[in-house]
């Protein structure tokens, strides 16, 4: 977001990125939703696909591939990717836990949930566990105020959280060990 400037990661050390065939087909169907010559409109939906195909974050290589698909200048992609808070410009854990911390959640105890997660995982918000399993993040209102406190992991909402529910969720995640992304169906 404007107020929090995120640096675009350098190319060094990042692995190459290429869309899968299925993803390219989905990109084409998304582009078809907009008038010809207006394919730039597809940028955000396609960045989501690239992020999901790149372990939950957008490397420079992934963003460059998006630019190529849409025929855009690289900077047009970077400036958008760095604006929206759901695009991660740094690697994230297999499970990216985004706890809502805005006032309606705070009133219903989100700070205690963040504290509990922090203690259980041994990390602070913004950090990833050493095994790369969990990233903890505090985020702003996710539109689930009636079932607060809550967190989002990929496309899933975990609502009406208690420390016990959080423990059960973490155990289930450790057992499954499968990345959850926003574009999961």
């Amino acid at each position: 977001m404007g107020a929090t400037i995120k640096a675009v990661t350098t190319r060094e050390g990042t692995k190459p990125f290429a869309f899968s065939e299925a993803a390219l087909a989905e990109c084409r169907s998304i582009i078809a939703r907009y008038p010809a010559e207006r394919s730039k409109s597809a940028l955000i939906p396609i960045l989501h696909i690239a992020q999901s195909e790149n372990d939950g974050w957008l490397s420079v290589n992934a963003m460059d591939a998006v630019a190529q698909v849409l025929g855009l200048k690289h900077i047009e992609v970077y400036e958008v990717a760095s604006f929206y808070s759901m695009f991660n410009l740094h690697p994230v854990g297999t499970y990216h836990l985004e706890v809502c911390q805005t006032s309606p959640c705070m009133i219903r105890g989100s700070e205690k949930i963040v504290g509990h997660l922090s203690k259980k995982l041994g990390i602070q918000p913004g950090e990833t566990t050493k095994d790369g399993m969990f990233t903890l993040k505090t985020v702003e209102c996710l539109g689930s105020c009636g079932s607060a406190p809550m967190l989002q992991c990929g496309a899933k909402y975990y609502e009406d959280l208690t420390p016990e529910k959080v423990d059960a969720m973490l155990d289930a995640m450790r057992a499954e060990n499968k990345r959850q992304t926003y574009t999961d169906r």
């Binding site: 955000i44 849409l70 604006f83």
Partner: peptide, 26 residues
Amino acid sequence: HMHIGAGAYICGEETALLESLEGKRG
């Protein structure tokens, strides 16, 4: 058609929403 955003409160403001729908910063 559906169009998905990517996390920005400001895009609820109608002109920011239109910018975002055009594939730009909100």
